[in-house]
Simulated assay, not measured.
Amino acid sequence: MQKPLIVATSRIIKLLANITKVLSYPFHWVLPNKRFTLPEQAAPLLKDGKPGPIPRIIWQTNFTDRVTLPVYLNYLFNRLMAPRFEYRFMITEARRAFIAEHYPEILPHYERLQIGAAQADLWRLLVLHKFGGAYLDIDAHQIWPLSCVLGAERKELFVTTRRGELSNYFIASAPGNPNLARLIDQVVLNIGSDASNNVFHLTGPGVFNSLLDRSLLPTVSYRHAVHQGNFTNEHFQYIDKPQGKWNHEQRNISVLKEDAVPDTPQHSAFNKTR
């Protein structure tokens, strides 16, 4: 009975979100330079509640913390849908600083990535492996309370698409997840071997679907957890980024810099030391 209720709720949210998106066009026509600031860190709106194995943290990243009204409304909605979760956000420079501090052996591989989306793909795996929590893309929004989606006992949760494939726009995990360690190892190996010039296959969902067995993973359909692109769209997300979305960027530049290939960290050493 709950799933039909979630789907019905998601349709109402989609309608309301799209109304705010349409109204944002005249708003930014009148105020073309108006931007809202996403906080680097924000405390939970509500303090009570029992934490489960997955820490109550929402992680997001973007090339800038100064965003348009639709992106900011998307952020506010996620906060309301996860009131007992802390919020943490990193821009490009903060992502690099995090990796330099906690994963210095992976930094040379990270720095070969020239496209922000590919960098964010690797960063989200590392930050969840280190601290745990739930990662959402900047245009993703919950359609059901996050605490209910995660449950009290789960140690990880992956989202599946309309076609039943794994995606990485929503990932939830406890720290030290061996599946995330495997994904990190594979992404680093892909970068070191110039495995692809496509973000999707080099660092993104293609890695998840080639490496992980969906039948052995706890998964949730996007229909019952997290949607994308209802509050915002490419215009509002990349209004201050002429290069546009990653799929446009990779048509014009190589995903990987033509630097000397760094030594790949030993997989066993990574798993033992993290």
Rank of each mutant, 00 (worst) to 15 (best):
Y87F: 00
Q142L: 15
L125K: 15
M81G: 05
T264K: 15
A94S: 07
F27K: 08
V67S: 02
K50M: 10
E111S: 12
E153I: 11
A100Q: 15
I171P: 03
R223C: 03
L45V: 10
N252T: 10
S215D: 13
A100F: 07
A140W: 00
L136K: 07
N190Y: 00
T160M: 05
R223H: 05
T273E: 11
L126E: 02
H129F: 08
V255L: 06
V207N: 08
T9Y: 10
D240S: 09
A181C: 13
R251I: 07
K50P: 03
R154P: 01
L126Y: 07
F270N: 12
I99F: 01
P108T: 08
L23H: 03
Y72S: 06
L128R: 03
A17P: 09
F85A: 01
Y103H: 05
L76H: 07
H248S: 13
T232S: 05
T161P: 08
H235E: 12
H129G: 09
R95M: 15
T64K: 03
H129V: 05
G204I: 06
I239K: 13
R11K: 14
F131E: 15
R214H: 12
D194S: 13
L45D: 05
Y25G: 08
Q2G: 08
D240T: 08
R163V: 11
Q250K: 00
N252P: 05
Q2D: 09
N78L: 00
Q243K: 14
G132H: 00
Q250N: 02
V187N: 04
G164F: 03
L31W: 12
A260L: 13
Q237E: 14
A172N: 00
T92Y: 15
W59T: 04
H248W: 14
L80D: 11
L150T: 14
